[in-house]
Nucleic acid binder design. Sequence first.
DNA 1: GTCTTCATGTAAGCCGTTACATGATTAA
DNA 2: TTAATCATGTAACGGCTTACATGAAGAC
Lengths: 170, 170
Amino acid sequence: MRLVNKTRYAILGMLLEGPSTGYEIKSLMGRSTVYFWRESDSTIYPMLKVLAEEGKVLSKIVYVGKKKKEVFSITETGRAEFKAWLKSPTGSETPRNEFLLKLFFVTDREEMMRLFQERLAKAQKTYEEYKKIEARLENLIDSPQRAIRLKALRYGIAHLALEILWLKEE
Amino acid sequence: MRLVNKTRYAILGMLLEGPSTGYEIKSLMGRSTVYFWRESDSTIYPMLKVLAEEGKVLSKIVYVGKKKKEVFSITETGRAEFKAWLKSPTGSETPRNEFLLKLFFVTDREEMMRLFQERLAKAQKTYEEYKKIEARLENLIDSPQRAIRLKALRYGIAHLALEILWLKEE
DNA sequence: GTCTTCATGTAAGCCGTTACATGATTAA
DNA sequence: TTAATCATGTAACGGCTTACATGAAGAC
């Protein structure tokens, strides 16, 4: 089976709620999906071009003062493609966890403890960040979206809490 | 920072316990690290060649009857490189979780439930597999390696149990 | 006899990252 | 006036997957 580029769906998804520039999509991802979906700097713009050629998005040049912006909006074709992806079976990602790989090869206790410490520090940091996002989300007005995202977030928080416990219990 | 190929460490790690052919390494990974580290079919052999050129492994042709095998063993240089990797800070993998990306964009409850069902089926299957591996591991004689692997496995099992609960509670 | 497993690769091509580039506007 | 943010990309390179290939040995 051909490997498909999923960047397109992330972008189309971001455009569902309204038109946006490449830059806005990029920064929106940086504020929302970073923890489970990250795009490199250079992927968004070329993909928007491709999507425009395919008729999945419409491009419109807008001037804000002298500043030029290219605003993209999703088309019906784009919406259809997005929905098809949502409905399609979710491919399992290739498992690649360097931490576990290291752990697998470790033989002495000291090295193991060092690995745990390193991992623990990261997990705790992420945990703090998640809790902050949770607080922000809780302050928004209620909506189906908010409920779903809050639920997903708490799932992430529960996972992290479990991991922290596991790492500490030695 | 340059992206490094970690396939080499997985291979060197597999050679720590003794010489092996490319095929054996491949099938060993299929039986042990699959759940957190998977290599595609075609990566092992070329990497073994590279490692041999670098002096990290030694190659030896062995005949079993008429059948030719190339058996590789790790050298001191190889061992040193492996240890350096173990000690080096673990890079965080790029987060790409298609399930969560879909969930993020979902607005209606029905679609959400469908996503959950799909995920649940997979999680339960993996859970069963982990439990089988756990049973096998428990029957081995005790060793530091066994203890570490059992611990790592149970961490995976706990994560899965949590996920299953989360998916069921709707 | 045929299927599975052992055993070892090559080639094409997408995917994705890092580094490199450029220039305007606005806040401090 | 200087730094951060807005805004948009190109180029090079390496990573990784899929598909394609081949052939022997042993099991059933």
